[in-house]
Design a protein around this nucleic acid. Structure first.
Lengths: 331, 331
DNA sequence: GTGAAAGCGCTAACAT
DNA sequence: ATGTTAGCGCTTTCAC
């Protein structure tokens, strides 16, 4: 790699001057500037982001971290895309860490992120009580949480009204005549699962439908979990006539299982999923789903993060976006 | 951030000794080591990856870059996951760059990656002639290409036999009795599109079916492109009785369009897609698809990269994996 | 307007 | 077995 030194030599100036034209703050003689620019071009010089980062802590290193629970979940992919869009617009690079619901992995990634001297972090932590993340926030790292918050510490948060989203889905199921509505939830430790469960219970209560605890299954937010719990449900003596799936991946597992067991959707079992996908229309049958504005969540989170990086004193914001129930053919 | 200096002071030793226990190479007195370890723990010291990177060029910085064309494509997500798996096992962090089929963006990301002093790079470049990437390889950066190669320079490559994959798909279509088989390809500039086209043509020829150029559409590897070309195809006076979709996203667009136009699959139009998805079974109808071992591709690429990082002289490898045609209900 | 020099946190000779 | 020191490539006072 050619360094500032090479440029300085070639232009016959000192590295300080080179640095000046690079960050075009101070005044530099036009002739000198031209010489330097020429040398930069000739040498194809590229400043080292690493050295910059090491030297100027606090000054923008233009690197932000992203911590996602599961890259296989299309929801997070969309969020990521939203973030990436604003990052790109502002010349930030992303260091992406996918911890796959594994808290050990999450911890390791947080440590790496920290030691990479990132400017900021967008995270969907496994737990709202994550001590390490909390510590990083306290130490002044700009952090924006998506999809879930972080207790006991001030952070910007972008999420969706999960309770209402679930409520609407289940309410729709009831209004469509379904009586035994099961809920396959994600990991019980993650907040979204609990909010969605709350919405589920409330909708049932509001409609005077007794809650059958047998119909509530907590799994681990994965495709396999959807498969497992759906097949258990379907094998019950009194199987449910509708399933509310706690997320994307679970929904896909549920659909697969129902097909494999030869049941008809929605005649024998209706399905509504939390999280819409852009290809929900091509599923069999077209899926009724609670749509989260994932891309928007990503964009907002990205914007909030950049704002906070530039102004650490700005008051904290909790941004709650609404979901939308997209009724198709599975209910 | 607490630094090595803080640790050294607290333990009453020099930073060199601290560095030694951290990289446990040389001999350190057990008592001293214990003291230092204690100080590290008490201070919650974390070495700065940035400083390490700056200092020791060439010595592993444990950061590798990933350059993917489109994170929305489930194929790349699976590849990414495979890479991430091996990276995690070897304590490498990933800096992920998604250029969204945009060559300008790709260039910017390559520059960033370069100036981050990464140890190596796994890339699926937009073009096999990318000059910047080529330059980086020439300058000694370990690079592994996935899904496509890089001309005029030696690199490890992991990809799939696209030609044969396409051939098998189309051959299957013919053998199933379809006569007017359309092909909606991805971006004509990317090699995979051309290989798949080749396989398509060959299968037709081998089966003595005349090629109708009207039935070959080149788009841009996106969902929208699938929608657009499928609807054009279906509106023809003599529409095709089968569609071979050039990738994941295109397939989804095709399916959506067929449903929207009220045609029956496979009775009115059969569909086979390149790239299988783990939820292909839940599509309407279950999709016949050419399965690429995406996860395996990722793992292999990751392994090759780590090997190359550790041994720049190792001979270059081109790894060609086979595809598998999964016949379901759409054909 | 420009240069010299200190230092960010670390590693790796080279001393002791 | 441990300490001293010179950088890695950059920014930023402080001089001139």
């Amino acid at each position: 790699m050619t360094s500032m030194n090479d440029v300085a030599k070639r232009a016959g100036v000192s590295i300080a001057t080179v640095s000046r034209v690079l960050n075009n703050n101070s005044n530099v003689n036009d002739a000198t500037r031209a010489k330097i620019l020429k040398a930069i071009k000739e040498l194809k010089y590229q400043p080292s982001r690493v050295a910059k980062r090491l030297r100027s802590k606090g000054i923008s290193s233009h690197l932000v971290g992203i911590l996602v629970p599961d890259i296989r979940n299309p929801f997070y992919v969309d969020v990521l895309e939203g973030i990436e869009e604003v990052a790109y617009d502002h010349n930030y690079a992303l260091i992406m860490c996918n911890f796959g619901q594994d808290e050990k992995k999450e911890k390791m990634y947080l440590e790496i992120l920290q030691s990479e001297s990132i400017d900021g972090l967008i995270a969907a932590p496994a737990s709202e009580d994550d001590p390490l993340l909390r510590k990083m926030v306290k130490e002044g790292l700009p952090v924006v949480c998506v999809d879930r918050g972080l207790n006991g510490v001030k952070v910007d948060v972008v999420l969706v009204n999960n309770e209402r989203g679930a409520y609407n889905a289940v309410d729709h199921l009831v209004k469509s005549g379904y009586k035994r509505i099961a809920f396959i939830a994600g990991l019980s430790t993650i907040p979204t699962s609990r909010w969605r469960e709350k919405g589920y219970r409330e909708a049932l209560q509001a409609n005077h439908i007794p809650i059958d605890e047998e119909l509530i299954k907590f799994g681990d937010s994965s495709h396999e979990s959807g498969v497992k719990h759906c097949s258990q449900l379907l094998k019950m003596t009194h199987p449910p006539d509708a399933i509310f799936a706690g997320n994307n991946l679970i929904t896909l597992g549920v659909l697969e299982t129902i097909h494999k067991m030869g049941r008809k959707v929605p005649e024998e079992v209706a399905v509504v999923g939390f999280d819409d996908m852009y290809w929900s229309n091509s599923l069999n049958p077209p899926l009724t789903a609670v749509r989260q504005p994932a891309h928007e969540i990503g964009r907002r989170a990205g914007e909030l993060l950049l704002q906070r990086i530039n102004d650490k004193e700005r008051p904290h914001i909790q941004m709650i976006l609404e979901t939308e129930l997209i009724v198709r053919k599975s209910t």
